[in-house]
Simulated assay, not measured.
Amino acid sequence: MSRSVLVTGGNRGIGLAIARGFADAGDQVAFTYRSGEPPAELTERGCLPVRCDITDGEQVEQAYKVIEDTQGRVQVLVANAGITRDQLLLRMSEEDFSAVLDTNLTGTFRMVKRATKGMLRARAGRVVLISSVVGLSGSAGQANYAASKAALVGFGRSIARELGSRGITCNVVAPGFVDSDMTRALTEERRTEIVGQVPLGRYAQPEEVAATVRFLASDDAAYITGAVIPVDGGLGMGH
């Protein structure tokens, strides 16, 4: 059965692969993007592009109204949108710390809170939060990013306990290093160094993360909630 799916930050990287995967499976997919133009490969698949800055509560509310008017209440929410502003702690400004937390954590709170209104009425829903291996293991120069991604685990597990009796699941996916525009921009030396830390010896493909998200949103995962699923090639083992 076709469902109403919303993927935040669905215009590139992992979010793009997630939106594409749900659309190819026959779901009605909306995706948010903050700037630029929405990717043609999604609009050609019938996905609904919604411009939305998730740090703005009014934009979030307007985005949901557009989605609900077009494809009904959101049944599956994938909270993927996030930013980085990497810097060593002593050089990190308060603005850089706050901006990352406001997008990655508070922005996710806004999206989840609004989506679960409809899920509660229907007594059914799937929420998947995209965290990071960095949120579990830490990373020098990413105190703000790691803090925001670690917080998603506590946030997601609290929601799982709070809403489980209403048929709503909430799980967290923690990707490791993913082959993307960001990692391709690294020097070959740095890419080799990163891969050397990964037991499987390679980067993840965005589609591998997307497949895990789709599983958690499926009927096969109906009894899974509050879980943190690593898709990191073994990089975060022990955390």
Rank of each mutant, 00 (worst) to 15 (best):
M92K: 01
V112H: 11
N104M: 11
L101T: 10
T103W: 11
V76W: 02
D96W: 12
S137T: 14
Y145C: 03
K117R: 15
L120A: 00
R123G: 15
L136Q: 14
F97H: 10
D96A: 12
K113D: 07
K149P: 00
R91W: 04
G135F: 06
A140N: 05
M92A: 01
S132H: 13
G107V: 06
M111L: 15
A99I: 08
Q142K: 01
S139D: 08
A124H: 12
V134K: 09
D86P: 04
E95G: 01
L90Y: 14
V128C: 01
A115L: 04
A147L: 07
L101Y: 13
R85M: 03
K113Q: 15
G82E: 02
V100P: 01
A99K: 12
L129M: 03
L105I: 07
S93P: 02
R85P: 01
G138D: 13
G141Q: 06
L88F: 13
V128P: 00
G107F: 09
G82C: 08
K149C: 01
N144A: 08
L105T: 08
A81W: 03
Q142H: 03
T116Q: 12
A122P: 02
K149A: 00
K149N: 00
K117C: 15
N104P: 10
A79Y: 05
R110V: 06
S93L: 04
F109K: 00
N104W: 09
R126I: 05
R85W: 09
I83A: 10
T84S: 15
L77S: 07
N104I: 10
S148Q: 02
E94I: 02
A99F: 13
D102M: 15
L120R: 03
G141N: 07
E95F: 08
L77Y: 09
Q142I: 00
L120W: 02
V100Y: 05
G135Q: 06
K117S: 14
L101F: 12
S131R: 01
Q75K: 06
I130Q: 00
Q75P: 04
G135P: 03
A150K: 11
V133D: 01
G141V: 07
M111I: 12
T103H: 09
T84Y: 14
M111F: 14
N144E: 00
D96I: 00
A124N: 07
A150W: 11
R85T: 02
